[in-house]
Design a protein around this nucleic acid. Structure first.
Lengths: 375, 375
DNA sequence: CTGAAAGCGCTTACAG
DNA sequence: CTGAAAGCGCTTACAG
């Protein structure tokens, strides 16, 4: 590989001149610039990333911290990753994928201390995420996809679950639904499922950028519980009944949850699911009980990629924000910090959209009295 | 951040001694080693990756070259990525995700010239993949996931489509199927679909490692066509009829393909699909025609992740090799090169497995004569 | 068993 | 508008 010294020699200038020509940080005469450019093409010169990083303290590499076990990946995860990767490239950065155990904090500290990355993006942020303190201690700037319990002063981008819940519930109410159920992950399930108390602190100033809406507060809960709370609030505000049933992340988990749901609230007219892996089990259990979707029971899925939602029969109506766009937005948020912006933390909520497919239908007998059986 | 000089000062030794203590490349007295270790913990020292990379010419970073558009990602792609990322970590390497346009070869040349990565992994390798020459020219070692038309001398790992096709066809024949159809991507479709001629060159020595079987030759075709050819060979060797219909990668593409298939070979008893996005369209079109799956028509999907196959009704029987394992294997293949192994190229085929779900059933009227209608 | 020193390939004050 | 030189934080012959 040609070095900068090679280029300088061939162009008949000093190394520093080549460097300045490359960075454009000081004026170079046209003829000199031409000779340098010619020499660079002739030699096929590419600056050495390590020498550059050693001197300038900037690597132009950002890390994507992805707490995944290869076997149990969420399906929209790829979209976050590709969105972030694509945007990083557009903005001249490399993206390092760092899959890890959320609890393996020592490894992270070491990684952060290497100075390899200029900043980090955190996926699947937990309410009390141990990674945050590690990054703060290491002085590595970061932005979160999702957020922790107390995100004050921290940059993040998240789905606007309040808006998304409103969108979902409004659509369903318009179809006559008044008895709604929510199936989330094992961490959900309301009081008997260990949901943390709702704290409605109105912190920070709302902001709206593009498809992004303002941040107004946190309830300190994990994703699933936040979605659950948002749906519950939206549902009860319309006078609808609401029940929540947790489910393991598997088809069997879905079956089981459906059984519990039928025991608890047999009159349910719509199930809103935030647990991709439980979907097949729920749909099969419903079928086994003779509940046709959507005629007898509507179903809606939150944050499910469109091509996945197409696979079920009927295809699932979904609601959610674009994972690709959130991935992109996270990169922009981080690079704003890396570019030295000292402004206060920016907390962005990304608006979702409703994608109508075939799994929601009007309630036929909207005002049937409790006690009747729908089947 | 503490530097090696800080550690040396605190431990009362020279910088070189600290360096040797860290690398273990020369004997250090126990007491010295102790003092150095103490100093490192006290200072929270982590070696600077850039200084190290500049001097040693090794970054311990490998790139995963992923020619993806964020919007149209294959579902098993995440599994390759996570498998590779996980294995890289285990082996002490970082994984840089490089999503790019397959044709944007200039960008790749620049990337490769930076000396940032020690090697690269290529996903979605094309028959005449322009990336290969770029990497060879840049002197960047690489391993392929999949392979090009002429992989002689190149390391790769791929699904053993011959074995996979045999597994699939054998299972189907055992159920009485004798009229098989294949639906692949737009690049498939046999002679009228532009399939390259089959060249059966027996190159290289077969090898078997773990779940990996030996490589015996290439037909110089893209993935889809190779799968198609493998299925065709397996089918005709059992005396079965075989037709192939290409499909666009979308639900509509699937519908359309199904219509063409019914015009071409209405007696078909099983469809083998290698085109995830076409699946919903095929299934709905079949249903519209009154063809029940699996009673009237069996279906099998190649290389579809299990949790995805669970979503359809009935869940899909699948056949294929583990994408996670192939991702891991690719890393091992590359690191073997990076560790200076000068042995000849290693070409590995990964065996697939059959996952029975509910979409394949015995043919009821196995010996019906042409002219009868199954519906 | 340990140290002094060169040098990896850049960037960036300093000087003109 | 351009150059000579220091230095980023390591690794690794060279010397003892």
């Amino acid at each position: 590989m040609a070095t900068m010294a090679d280029v300088a020699r061939l162009a008949g200038v000093s190394v520093s001149t080549v460097s300045y020509a490359l960075s454009g940080t000081r004026p170079i005469s046209l003829s000199t610039r031409r000779r340098i450019e010619q020499a660079m093409t002739d030699l096929g010169y590419t600056p050495n990333a390590f020498a550059r990083g050693l001197k300038s303290k900037r690597s132009r590499i950002i890390a994507l911290l992805f707490p995944a076990r290869p076997e149990t990946s969420q399906r929209s995860a790829l979209e976050y990753v590709l969105g972030a990767s694509d945007q990083a490239r557009r903005r001249g950065y490399h993206l390092m994928l760092w899959t890890h155990d959320v609890e393996a904090v020592d490894d992270l500290a070491q990684f952060a201390g290497q100075g390899l990355v200029d900043g980090a993006l955190l996926m699947e942020v937990q309410p009390h995420d141990p990674r945050i303190q590690v990054l703060v201690d290491a002085g590595v700037p970061f932005a979160m996809i999702g957020h922790n319990a107390d995100p004050e002063g921290l940059d993040f981008i998240d789905s606007d679950f309040g808006q998304i819940a409103g969108l979902a519930v409004h659509h369903l109410v318009g179809m006559g639904h008044r008895r709604m159920a929510f199936v989330g992950g094992p961490e959900t399930g309301g009081p008997d499922g260990g949901r943390p108390e709702i704290r409605e602190e109105e912190t920070g100033a709302p902001e709206t950028i593009g498809a992004v809406s303002g941040w107004v507060g946190t309830d300190g809960a994990a994703d699933g519980s936040r979605v659950e709370n948002a749906i519950q609030r939206a549902a009860t505000s319309t006078g609808s009944e609401f029940v929540s049933v947790p489910a393991e992340r598997s088809a069997d988990g879905g079956r089981e949850a459906f059984t519990r749901l039928m025991a608890k609230a047999p009159e349910t007219t719509v199930i809103i699911v935030f647990n991709e892996h439980a979907v097949p089990g729920i749909m099969r259990a419903a079928k086994d009980l003779g509940r046709r979707i959507p005629e007898d029971l509507s179903m809606m899925s939150i944050d499910m990629p469109g091509h996945v939602a197409e696979l079920t029969t009927p295809p699932l109506t979904t609601v959610g924000a674009s994972a690709v766009e959130i991935g992109r937005g996270a990169v922009d948020l981080l690079l704003r910090r890396l570019d030295g912006d000292m402004a206060p933390a920016r907390q962005l909520l990304f608006r979702g959209e409703l994608n109508l497919r075939g799994s929601c239908a009007p309630v036929l007998n909207a005002d049937h009295t409790p006690g009747e059986t729908l089947t």
